Simulated scan of single mutants.
Amino acid sequence: MVQYYPAFLDLSDKKVVLFGGGPVALRKAKALSETGADLIAVSRDFSPEFLAFAKRHRLKLRHGSEIQNSLRGASLAIAATSDKAFNKTVFERCKQKGILINVVDDPGHSSFIVPSVLKRGRLQIAISTGGASPLLAKTLRQKLAVEFGSEYGRLVRQLEQDRSKSKKTIFLEKDRRSHFRQVVASGLKGFKRKRNTSLRGNVFK
C-alpha cells in the first residue's frame, strides 16, 4: 500500500503537459491555469468548451497524440484521456524521464495523486483517501464547504498583511508568535459569533 506525502507544488513558469481534450481534461486545465504554469494541452480532438477556454486563457494546444516530443522539458504531466492504453504509455514515458505524472482515476499508473480541494482565496484545504475512495474525499470537501465560507479567504488576506507589518514592528520572535496567535484567535472568534447568531436566527424562522 502506497503512503503518499502531501505537498503543494509551485508550478509557476514550469512546463506542464495535459493529455486530453474532453470534460475531464478541461477541469484539470481550469485548475492548472490558476498556477501560472506554462500549460500545453495535447489531444487528437478538443471539445468546443475546451477550445473556448483555451482561447480565453491563451492555452497552448497541440493537435495529435505525440508523447515523446510533447514531454520534452516538462516538469509535470497529467493524462486525462479516455484511452487507457494511451494513458499507460504516457505514464511509462514520464517514468523513464523522471517527470511527475498523474493518470486521472488510475493511482497505479501515477507518481502522484490529486486531492479533493476546497479553496477560499489563498486558503486551500486538501483531502485525500490515497485513492481508496475519491467519493468520500469529495463528500468531506462538500461538508467542509459549509463550515469554511468565503470569510476565511478574507481572513487569510488580513493575516498576510498583518504578518508583513508585524515583521517590521515586532522584533522579538516570541512576541511575534504571541501576536499572531492573538490575531488568529480573534478572527476565528468573530466567525464563531456570526455563525451562532445565524443559527439562532434560523431557529425562529
Results as ranks from 00 to 15, higher is better:
R120I: 00
E49C: 00
S33I: 13
D10G: 04
S110T: 01
V146D: 11
K167N: 15
Q161C: 01
L140V: 11
F8W: 08
A77H: 00
A185T: 07
L136P: 07
H57K: 09
V2T: 13
K95S: 14
C94Q: 08
G190M: 03
V17W: 02
A31T: 14
S70Q: 04
L26F: 03
N87V: 08
D10N: 09
I40L: 14
S12W: 15
L9T: 00
D162S: 09
V2P: 09
Y152Q: 04
C94T: 13
R93W: 14
D13E: 15
S75Y: 13
S43D: 01
L76Q: 03
R44D: 00
P134D: 03
R44N: 08
R72W: 08
Q96G: 10
A52S: 12
F46S: 00
G98S: 07
G153N: 04
S82Y: 03
N196C: 05
K95W: 09
S12A: 15
A52K: 13
R62N: 07
R27P: 06
F8I: 12
R154L: 12
V203Y: 09
N87D: 06
F46P: 07
K88R: 15
A7F: 15
G98I: 07
G22N: 06
T139F: 04
D105W: 02
E66I: 08
T35G: 07
Q124N: 08
R193F: 11
I99V: 08
L159K: 11
L59Y: 04
V203M: 12
P115F: 11
L155Q: 13
E92F: 03
K189C: 10
G190W: 01
A80I: 00
T81V: 05
R62D: 12
T169F: 02
A145I: 05
R120W: 12
R120H: 03
E147T: 15
V114H: 03
A41C: 08
L172D: 11
S110D: 02
Q3A: 09
P48W: 00
K30R: 12
F204S: 15
L135W: 14
N196W: 05
K95R: 15
G149F: 07
K14V: 02
A54Q: 08
P48D: 01
D105M: 09
D162P: 04
S65F: 07
K30G: 00
L18D: 05
T169S: 13
A80V: 02
L71I: 07
G131K: 02
F8C: 09
G108P: 02
R195L: 10
P134N: 05
A31G: 15
A79M: 03
G130L: 07
R93A: 15
D162G: 06
R93D: 13
N87F: 01
A137Y: 06
P48G: 01
N102C: 01
K168I: 02
I40G: 04
F50L: 00
A185D: 12
R93S: 13
E34T: 05
I78D: 04
